[in-house]
Design a protein around this nucleic acid. Structure first.
Length: 604
RNA sequence: GGGGUGUUAGUUAAGUCGGUUAUAACGCCGGCCUGUCACGCCGGAGGCCAGGGGUUCGAGUCCCCUACACCCCGCCA
């Protein structure tokens, strides 16, 4: 008997043998995916990352091999040697290797397996809790293997794409100085500097800009970023970005490079030709029509802004709407076509849904033949004039349903944005993964540079303080900061923000005016960003860049339903790792060593 | 910080109006079987019904609390 691995090297994967290989003597390694023991003949589906191959052990050919094969159970790790044979009339069309099978002449069991805590099957049939606890088993499942293999390809294609175009792959520190504002940072105590802390980088932002100031001209990095914020379906505390920065460019140059990358990924991995250039939409339009800056354009159903109509009619007999606009709130509607056929129960469920997002209720009206409203608490009081104006603005037809939301701007936007997507799902307007027309790329452009912070009564950077304002808006920096728009852009796909970036401020004089508008003193700016401000003063080139969410890109590319399905070792919603138990306890001695004292008192 | 959904053999689920021995399938163990591919047949083991408290003659089932997982709001430039 020849020995596996030392003498018998693997000749093929479990996914590649075809009719062309019939007659070959092959060696395969893998896991027992399934067994069918017929006594005199034992059938095994052998699995590796490439696929499945049926292996047959027959009693009258190699009795000792057949006997050992009787011991095989699910997930045993084995090596086999055998001859590739045609399956003739017994071919299995469901299997890529279904036309052949391997008649085993030798078998070794590298390792037996206890019964696994859940079956290793394509379809998930266990709780996410169990899957994460035994993630190494979960990852044996073919869909996850395929996803991570795709992820590796995205990495590879991205590196090639940028390298071919003169971008340098340069690294940036993870352990950085804490700067206030933006995402909450994970903190790392410094043993050598008592009482001081590093922050884990939430992005390489400042360093990549400094690379430009150093003259590296074009930079990219596939880089891990860390943010200590609450998790979501599409948010993990550590995630990967495709980070890019370029000197001597305007917005369109960045778009061009990124569209090229995305098109290459979609072409190479899915065989899909995306139309270029991608659609562009002003931020203000996106907010008005969709309630957020990441609209899903695979379906229509836009919001209708009714604020001005309500104002013009002095409330139109609807006190709640009147109050809303008086208090600087907004009024919006969505028209649900009669074809949706929503029942009262359906609408009540919708009301529950929006209440979960901070809405007080869900005002609605069904449109009668004569344009009057029915099934509506508003119907009695509203003036016919305002009703007609709203009907016209919404394009409401008899049988249609109008859903309203009014109040504080942020709440109305959030509720209506989520409601729009929720309705589309309910109505089946969103195409299945992989079907035609399912890739709606969009650049959302020209957002305001500042947003007003009600709490502190100041203007704050809507994104970060180093975004270049539109030249024509510069005069308003001092007089009306709210109307200053900037060269900031988000790349959106099917309702997900895939990435964002900006053309940066490289002019120290304008930078100073921006800080002033935000009420940040020279002193404060020096403390926070002194090194960057200095760098700006010493020949900083015009530059701009972008960061793409690598995980989200792979998620959409593969049709995965959760970011956790494209991250090999993800955290739970509470940020824990169910497999390793991280984050874990440390003892007092370790804490003293880094000069940290915990105020947490564990319950006894 | 807030709202919602869930937790029953190893796994996936069923469990009626609160009623006495908590079912089934897959997996596991033993036996049989040479053309299966969701192989089949016979037999068997396997349960702190997430944890704690309460209501009740009686709780998997009703109530409260806690834990964990998931979804959403806030948060995430």
């Amino acid at each position: 008997m020849a020995r596996f691995i030392t003498e018998l090297k693997r000749t093929h994967s479990c996914g590649e043998l075809t009719k062309a290989d019939i007659g070959k003597d092959v060696v395969l390694f893998g896991w027992v995916n399934n067994r069918r023991d017929h006594g005199g003949a034992v059938f095994i589906d052998l699995r590796d990352r490439e696929g499945l191959t049926q292996v047959v052990f027959e009693a009258d050919v190699r009795p000792e091999v057949h006997e050992l094969a009787g011991d095989l159970r699910l997930e045993f790790c084995v090596g086999i040697r055998g001859t590739v044979v045609s399956r003739g009339g017994n071919a299995n069309p469901k299997l890529r290797t279904g036309e052949i099978e391997v008649h085993a002449t030798e078998l070794t069991i590298f390792n037996r397996s206890e019964p696994t805590p859940f079956p290793i099957e394509d379809k998930v049939e266990t709780s996410e809790e169990k899957r994460l606890q035994f993630r190494y088993l979960d990852l044996r499942r073919a869909p996850l293997q395929k996803t991570l293999m795709t992820r590796a390809r995205v990495n590879h294609l991205t590196r090639n794409y940028f390298s071919e175009r003169g971008f340098l792959e340069l690294e940036t520190p993870f352990m950085v100085k804490y700067t206030p504002g933006g995402a909450r940072n994970f903190l790392v105590p410094s043993r050598l500097n008592p009482g001081k802390f590093y922050a884990l980088a939430e992005s390489p932002q400042l360093f990549k800009q400094l690379y430009m100031m150093s003259g590296f001209d074009r930079y990219f990095q596939i880089v891990r970023c860390f943010r200590d914020e609450d998790l979501r379906l599409d948010r993990q505390p550590e995630f990967t970005q495709i980070d890019v920065e370029m000197s001597f460019v305007e917005q369109n140059d960045v778009f061009d490079v990124i569209e090229g990358l995305v098109c290459k990924l979609w072409k190479e991995i899915l065989g899909v030709e995306l139309p270029r250039p991608f659609q562009r939409m002003p931020y203000a339009e996106s907010m008005a029509k969709y309630g957020n800056d990441k609209p899903d354009l695979r379906f229509d159903m836009p919001h209708v802004v009714l604020t001005d109509i309500v104002k013009a009619h002095g409330g139109g007999g609807v006190p709640l709407m009147h109050e809303a606009v008086q208090a600087k709130g907004i009024v919006k509607a969505i028209r649900v076509p009669a074809s949706a056929g929503f029942s009262r129960t359906d609408i009540e469920k919708l009301e529950e849904y929006v209440k979960g997002m901070g809405a007080k209720g869900l005002a609605r009206a069904k449109i009668a033949e004569n344009g009057e409203w029915t099934q509506s608490p508003l119907a009695k009081n509203i003036t016919p004039e305002m009703r007609a104006a709203i009907n016209a603005a919404c394009g409401a037809q008899p049988g249609d349903l109008l859903l309203f939301q009014f109040g504080k701007e942020n709440m109305v936007h959030t509720v209506m944005a989520n409601l729009r997507v929720h309705l589309a799902k309910k109505m089946g307007l969103i195409p299945e993964y992989g079907s035609g027309g399912s890739w709606r790329y969009l650049w959302v452009v020209d957002p305001p540079l500042f947003e007003y912070d009600e709490e502190s009564k100041t203007w704050a950077a809507a994104h970060h303080a180093f975004t270049r304002p539109h030249d024509e808006d510069l005069p308003y920096l001092e007089t009306d900061p709210g109307r200053v728009n900037c060269y900031r852009y988000d790349l959106v796909l099917n309702g997900f923000e895939l990435g964002g970036g900006s053309i940066r401020l490289h002019d120290p004089a304008v930078q100073a005016r921006v800080f002033k508008a935000m009420g940040i003193s020279d002193e404060e700016a020096r403390v926070k960003f002194g090194f960057l401000l200095d760098a700006l003063k010493m020949g900083a080139p015009p530059h701009g860049g972008i960061a793409l969410g690598m995980d989200r890109t792979v998620m959409l590319l593969t049709g995965a339903e959760s970011l956790r399905d494209v991250v090999a070792w993800p955290k739970t919603q509470k940020g824990t790792d169910l497999m390793t138990g991280a984050p874990g306890d440390v003892d007092l001695k370790q804490l003293r060593e880094v000069y940290v004292k915990s105020t947490f008192e564990p319950q006894k």
